[in-house]
Design a protein around this nucleic acid. Structure first.
Lengths: 278, 278
DNA sequence: TATAATAATGACTAATCGGTCAATTGTCAA
DNA sequence: TTGACAATTGACCGATTAGTCATTATTATA
């Protein structure tokens, strides 16, 4: 399993430098110091490697944003946290982000594209909830404009990460964007994005998360989680979810037990989404 | 020469759909209805095709923005024009824009990347001049933040062009972004980008435009310009520029003669830049 | 119409790609 | 030390790529 991790890391390195298509499996295996055959013991294909890398990371982003939005802090602080954690994630995974920005990924797997789109819609929903909480009725008309603007600002500043080679003052950046967001939210009068234009952004296919997928994720985690409490919680969680009458209180409690483990964040997010949409 | 144009158009079509790397020369020639050999009569290599396509378009963007910024209109109108012409350009060249967004082009030619970077810096300069004119001393501190924000907003809304399939109300969009720009310019207090962070954005390598390149461009245009006045102006312009003591007044007058020809815009821009930097 | 000049063709090459699998090496219980 | 089993290797495969060039078709000229 460590081999798999090694391959993914080295692959991200090369993908970031050269692009995905221009990086051959040969190059990856050479950088890892393994043979080509060994690569195909860990991954069925080059495509599976790409999907794994991106899937892993998107899960991290999505659950991170969701955690921020659902935190018990006051809303202004949440907005700050949203920006800060977005940029932190970027800084901590520079290489991946570089690769992700470099490729627009229209070349690869259609299924992967759908998934990316789905995750994007989920983060949009989370951001909209945050905006609702922050400004309420006041931005009813222009919340989609605000969403697009926030995305634009975030992306634009994100690019600086790759062109400027000094460590950035992330808290300051987050505060600057909070100010801009508040400005745009409170004083914008011209609405561009009407409901009509927004259908695509608004309605994600909410039936994407199924109980089967959750169980799969639990089984995957069972193999890598070492902590006793967490492992036990996973077992009970699996039983509860497969139960005909699952008890929400128990499930939510179990989620609390595992939510601090980085690997479990995606599972926590999925279960929460699943419960919300029932 | 028409063949060259055909190839470029069809290539853009395929590049936009499949990405540059995944599009083979074979596919391009098939779509054009010509043979593979014929392709290599028009282009030395696939790389030259890519460079030509991108170079052509970047010249168009750069000279367009410059034209807006240097127009005699009042400044608020210029800002509106800036946004409007940016989006118009995008709408008129959807396929190219799609391709440009899709690939981040780090795969190809390093020389091309340098050139893209150079053009980007030129547009930055033009935008900064516009901002200076608009807000003067007031945004001295945060003009770079404003620049980055404007770029972010533009890009973010640009993406809608490819996800939403209804024709967009561009004048409204331009007005909306003018409002946002004014808001950010007039009420932002937190400055993130200080002079220190901004070196890369600020100092383009200004020696890029040389008299040799200008002469080359004139020679190129001589072959395609049909209008009598324009053709004559090009001849005189060439003589003037090679003259030991070129007369600015004459040169500027000659530029007036050709500035309305789409093909000549880049030449006009280069000469202006050249004169400014002397 | 005959001849020269030019334009266009597509079979071909060498290189590289993702992916396979017989052969080899490493591990560990008996 | 042996032998059974698992892990690992890299030569090899078919497919595809960018680019070439001897040959053929077309056009211009005399």
């Amino acid at each position: 399993m460590a081999k798999r991790q090694l391959i993914m890391e080295k692959a991200i390195e090369l993908f970031a430098k050269q692009g995905i298509e221009s990086t051959s499996v040969q190059q990856i295996t050479e950088l890892c110091g393994i043979s080509k055959g060994a690569f195909y013991l860990s991954f069925k294909s080059k495509d599976e490697l790409i999907v794994s890398i991106i899937d892993d990371f998107i899960k991290k982003i999505t659950s991170d944003i969701d955690r921020v939005v659902n935190s018990p802090k006051n809303v202004q602080e949440k907005l700050y946290d949203f920006y800060l954690s977005s940029f932190k994630l970027l800084q901590d995974h520079r290489e991946f982000a570089k690769m992700f920005i470099k490729e627009q990924l229209h070349t690869v797997n259609q299924a992967l594209l759908n998934r990316i789109n789905y995750y994007e819609q989920l983060t949009n929903q989370a951001m909209l909830r945050l905006l609702d909480e922050l400004y309420g009725e006041k931005i009813k008309e222009n919340k989609y404009d605000l969403l697009i603007s926030m995305r634009g600002l975030t992306e634009s500043y994100s690019k600086l990460f790759f062109t400027i080679n000094v460590p950035l003052n992330l808290p300051l950046l987050a505060r600057a964007l909070v100010e801009k967001t508040n400005l745009l939210a409170n004083h914008t009068s011209i609405v561009f994005l009407n409901e009509n234009l927004v259908q695509q952004i608004k309605h994600p296919s909410t039936d994407y998360i199924t109980i089967t997928k959750i169980i799969q994720e639990i089984d995957r985690l069972k193999k890598i989680v070492t902590n006793q409490l967490e492992s036990e919680s996973l077992d009970i969680l699996k039983n509860q979810l497969q139960n005909d009458v699952p008890t929400h209180a128990i499930i939510l409690g179990l989620l609390q037990n595992i939510k601090n483990n980085e690997d479990c964040k995606w599972l926590v997010f999925m279960v929460e989404q699943y419960l919300n949409n029932k």
